[in-house]
Design a binder for these strands. Structure first.
Lengths: 129, 129
DNA sequence: CGGGATCCAAGCAGATACTG
DNA sequence: CAGTATCTGCTTGGATCCCG
């Protein structure tokens, strides 16, 4: 449990349960969030197009993810009342700044893909059988 | 950095469901993984100490996270057969390289903490009641 | 002390159906 | 086309007990 002392909480310690930056980490660390932000790129992207780009995402999950991102102020939603209706999503300024750290993570993944796989295989072989 | 061919990214397209880098992203993007890697820092850290540092993590989750990290080759586990037993965890070389991108994410969170909260409040106010 | 195994509740995510 | 709502299965994760 959190000891509620009168001591003021230091901002930069996400290991504390009460640190709000943890909530942010949870949000942006979400699987579909990472992929959606990446898929948005620079331009305005329609919902259906986004759905095609982020392979495997369900209708529901994409909607939820976009709502959350919009609520966080990272994505702007524009509705064109045409028939049929057209809705486009685009990253806000804040949203764009998020792309850097995410891309860094992505690059790390790609760089260490092979090593990690190898390590996993070794680990599994020395454990099973 | 992955060499891209012409316009579209070849290897680095985690939006495809079959791309293995997605699995990595899922793993390292995990809530406890991020916090655990951060909590490990530079030194050798005991299980119980780790549990204390990563506030809120359950016994089970910490174990699972550490197992996964060990399997990925990002964490080394050392057992000292004393009484009582002592087990220390430390980041491997590969594990240390992961800290940079994760720290970038963490910093982003801290930097944008206020903006995101404000945006959320505004969003909620204009929707409910 | 570290950690595996089990049980069970709660939250998450997919499928489906319906609206503007 | 974009989005909401509901229903439901399934995964997740916490609590607990036991073992080395």
């Amino acid at each position: 449990m959190v000891t509620t002392s009168s001591e003021s909480v230091v901002v930069g310690s996400p290991y504390r349960a009460d640190c709000p930056s943890r909530r942010i980490l949870d949000r942006i660390g979400d699987r579909w969030t990472v992929l959606t932000v990446g898929a948005l790129g620079d331009g305005n992207v329609r919902f259906s197009e986004l759905r095609r780009r982020v392979e495997g995402v369900s209708h529901k999950m994409l909607t939820q993810t976009l709502r959350a991102l919009e609520r966080d102020g990272l994505v702007r939603r524009t509705v064109y009342p045409e028939v049929p209706i057209r809705v486009e999503y685009t990253l806000t300024e804040a949203g764009r700044t998020l792309r850097e750290p995410l891309r860094a993570l992505e690059e790390w993944s790609i760089t260490h893909l092979h090593d990690v796989s190898t390590s996993q295989e070794t680990y599994d072989r020395t454990r099973s059988s």
